[in-house]
Amino acid sequence: MHIMEGYLPPQWCVFWYIVSAPFIIYGVYILNRQVKENRETLSLLAVSGAFIFLLSSLKLPSPVAGSCSHPTGTGLSTVLFGPIITCVLSLIVLIFQALFMAHGGITTLGANVFSMGIAGPLLGYAVYRLGKAVNLNIFVNIFLVTAVADLFTYVVTAIELAVAVPLQGGFVFSFETFFAIYAITQIPLAILEGVLIALVFKYIIQSRADILVKLGVLTQEQITKIMGSFS
């Protein structure tokens, strides 16, 4: 998904920076407030950022020129802290990867942040809220959030590439071509990532359920019910 340095035309680099900027600015504000009000959540913030970094660093070659395939790791942060804080964590990860790992780039940072840190988590969070509204099993919900956030990241990346470097068939043909290629690797990766994050969430429930209650992710009644099902 990381679009490499220098691949997008300058006008599109600027455009995605402008689109991403309001989310980042608001995200920094929300993150600062979160840290001040709930210092005990710092450990989970660190774990969430680490998962984004680790999973999105697993770069796989992609036939799509100027890009690559990999999990995104944003599902855990999206559920624990919401999509706005997730976009800030993603920004930090993407800057580090661009500067020290030659993964992505500074000129394409706005586009990469928008697809992985904003669009994917936003749709994933919408799925999460819908799942809660219909009382979907929490682990199934976590799986769906993670898989949807992963796949939608690549839908948006395919759009970004289709509008900036279209193939001869035009935008629709370009989008279909780019995403069809991504789907070969991303569908199995999204499934595996969903299973992994669901297992991590189970561990968090078992070890730090109190923080989940403070964050409003689960109620104490729900925690008790889930813990009972483990017995």
Rank of each mutant, 00 (worst) to 15 (best):
I138Y: 02
A147K: 05
L122F: 15
L130N: 06
R129Q: 13
V79E: 00
L60M: 13
T78I: 04
L91M: 15
S77I: 04
V140S: 15
L58A: 13
S90P: 07
N137Q: 13
T72I: 13
G117R: 03
A147Y: 09
F100W: 14
V134W: 12
S77C: 05
I106F: 07
V64L: 08
L122C: 13
G110W: 06
P61T: 05
S62K: 05
T74C: 12
S77A: 11
T108R: 09
N137D: 15
N135V: 12
L91F: 15
N137P: 13
V148G: 08
L136K: 06
S90F: 10
T78A: 04
L89D: 08
A126H: 07
L136F: 10
T78H: 01
V140M: 14
L122E: 11
G82E: 00
N141A: 12
M101H: 13
V88M: 01
V93M: 12
I106A: 03
C68E: 08
L130V: 14
L109A: 00
L80G: 03
L123K: 00
A147L: 14
V145P: 07
G117M: 11
P63G: 03
G104P: 11
G82R: 04
S62G: 02
N135G: 09
L144R: 01
L58M: 15
L109P: 12
L144I: 13
I92V: 15
F143L: 15
A147F: 12
L91D: 00
I138E: 12
L58Q: 10
A119T: 10
F96S: 10
N137L: 08
G75Y: 07
T146I: 12
Y125M: 07
A65R: 10
S115M: 04
V148D: 02
T78R: 01
G110I: 10
P121E: 01
T72K: 03
I85S: 01
I92H: 05
H70T: 08
T86I: 11
G73D: 05
G75R: 03
L60T: 10
I138C: 08
A149P: 07
G124V: 01
L94S: 11
L122W: 11
A147S: 15
I95L: 14
N137S: 09
K59W: 03
I118C: 10
K59G: 02
C68S: 14
V127E: 06
G131F: 08
